[in-house]
């Protein structure tokens, strides 16, 4: 099918291609619904009922229940939509980054700050 055309996978990276999208449609549809405040409230009021309404697969339902971001991605979730679900749990992109990389949130933030060193290295190389 299409996989054969793809070059080597990128470590720790999951391209949201057609195969992922076909798998993740229900989960992403639920997350997209969270653009509306009433839907966020309905999810918080009865998470099971809300997930059932969107026909989540069992993998998707389990990943949502566990707040398992990598599990959601494995089940076809796309980060742009998942970010709306994360917002309901009060999680920002650093929290989500920490969850996925196995770091604590302060560690993940420090990891980001440390990357400023790349600029100094470049300046040293290129003058």
């Amino acid at each position: 099918m299409t996989a054969q055309q793809h070059p080597a996978p990128i470590e720790g990276t999951h391209l949201f291609d057609g195969i992922a999208a076909a798998k993740g449609f229900e989960l992403n549809a639920m997350c997209y619904s969270f653009n509306e405040a009433a839907n966020r409230a309905a999810f918080l009021a009865d998470e099971d009922a809300y997930c059932a309404r969107f026909n989540l697969t069992s993998d998707q339902r389990e990943a949502v229940a566990k707040r398992d971001v990598l599990g959601m991605i494995a089940a076809g979730g796309n980060i742009y939509y998942l970010a709306k679900l994360a917002g309901i749990f009060g999680l920002n992109v650093q929290d989500v980054g920490a969850l996925q990389t196995g770091k604590s949130v302060p560690e993940f933030k420090q990891f980001l700050l440390d990357q400023a060193q790349q600029i100094k290295q470049l300046e040293a190389t290129h003058g």
Binding site: M1, T2, Q5, D17, G18, A21, A22, F25
Partner: peptide
């Protein structure tokens, strides 16, 4: 036939057809 749909879409976008994909 979603697999064939995505096969066609992959090729079309690579061939510079700016399609809208409808799931």
């Amino acid at each position: 036939h979603t697999e064939l749909s995505w096969h066609l879409i992959e090729h079309l976008v690579e061939s510079e057809f700016d399609v809208t994909t409808c799931q």
